[in-house]
Amino acid sequence: MPVDSFKFLPRIIGTYYKMTKREPEFPIPWTPLPGPLSGCKFGLITSGGLYHKGVEPPFDIEREKREPKWGDPTYRTLPIDIQQSDVGASHLHINTQGVLEDVNILLPIHRFRELVDEGRIAGLAESAYSFMGYQGFPPDTNAWQDSYGLDVAEKFKAEEVNCVLLTPA
């Protein structure tokens, strides 16, 4: 059975989404896997609005409250040895209780460290990154495409990452 994208959405949001007209821009980018996973170094990214408490500020949800049609396009850095109690979440569109109990549901740092230990993958980047998924209304992802997404790609490549797992929230 195909996954129903609308199963958990309030009907009004689902109906609105279905009215959106959008076609993919072709060609879809493609980087072939460089070899077996056991030789691949991974990077992790989520859009769950996570941040490293006491080290970086939360996403700017105060501005979003003042300007509901704006969403913070910046990103935050989370070391993969972060303690669960140091994980913060600032996201006004989801209940963040689950991820504050277990970061792995959005940023699977422990699961991937286990994969490294088992030798199934070659390595994991020292830093994972989080964006905050709400990019305004209508959504404007130019800052992600032109600036912040490229920054993260460069940081991963500087760590010799070749594969990335993305987990939108």
Binding site: P2, V3, S5, F6, F8, Y17, I28, P29, W30, T31, P32, L33, P34, C40, G43, I45, S47, F131, G133, T141, W144, Q145, G149, L150, V152, A153, E154, F156, K157, V161, N162, C163, V164, L165, L166, T167, P168
Partner: peptide, 23 residues
């Protein structure tokens, strides 16, 4: 986030996205 997958892939990284919104 779909846009970020494209951006990273175009930068030379092989990506996999897990999502509840295949739409």
């Amino acid at each position: 986030m779909p846009v970020l997958a494209r951006t990273l892939e175009a930068s030379g990284l092989s990506t996999i996205m897990v999502t509840m919104m295949p739409f």
